[in-house]
Computed example of a mutant assay.
Amino acid sequence: MTNGKAWASYLLILAGATFGLGAIAMGLPAWAGSLVVAFSVLFGAVLRLIAPDDRESLLAVRSRRTDAVTYGVLGGVLTVVALSVAVQWITGRQ
């Protein structure tokens, strides 16, 4: 039987993506919702990296480090894109 804490990083990313996309659907600017998604992915990468070995993954084909690097790169790219859209939105160059 697996421990529920092994799913913490995955569930955090799913919750952050749901909240960010839901906020966009409710009328929040796209850059703000995208930042919520990006930060949840980055925080998920940190959680995945610091997970203890006995709870590291439910997937035997990927390592903890691979997941953390993948999440970190994806979160970094999402952050850069969201901030570039935010700068354009704030300055009025939509």
Rank of each mutant, 00 (worst) to 15 (best):
P52R: 11
I24G: 09
G22D: 10
A25R: 14
G22I: 03
V81F: 10
Y10P: 02
Q94M: 11
G27A: 03
V85G: 08
F43P: 03
W31S: 14
G33R: 00
V85E: 11
V61R: 13
L14F: 10
T2Y: 14
A30E: 12
A82F: 00
S34T: 13
L49K: 09
A23N: 08
S63A: 05
I50R: 09
V69N: 06
A23Y: 05
G33T: 15
L11K: 03
A45S: 09
M26Y: 12
Y71E: 07
A32P: 04
T91R: 15
V37M: 02
I50K: 09
A23V: 07
V80M: 13
R62P: 05
Y71N: 02
V37Q: 00
A86H: 12
V69H: 09
E56M: 12
V46I: 12
P52F: 05
T2H: 14
R64Y: 00
D53F: 11
S9P: 13
A30Y: 12
L28C: 03
A82T: 06
G72A: 06
Q88I: 09
A51W: 01
A15F: 12
I13E: 01
S9V: 00
A15V: 02
D67S: 06
T70Q: 10
S57F: 04
S9W: 12
T70K: 03
M1F: 14
G92H: 11
I24E: 07
V61F: 08
A25I: 08
F19K: 06
G20A: 00
A86G: 15
V61A: 12
E56K: 14
F19H: 04
R64C: 01
L58W: 06
L12K: 00
L47V: 13
D67E: 11
A6C: 11
T79M: 04
L28E: 04
V80I: 07
T18I: 15
A17V: 08
A6S: 12
Q94I: 15
R48I: 04
G27M: 06
F43I: 12
L78G: 08
V81S: 09
G92W: 10
L12N: 01
R65I: 09
V81K: 10
Q94P: 14
L12Y: 02
L35D: 01
L28M: 09
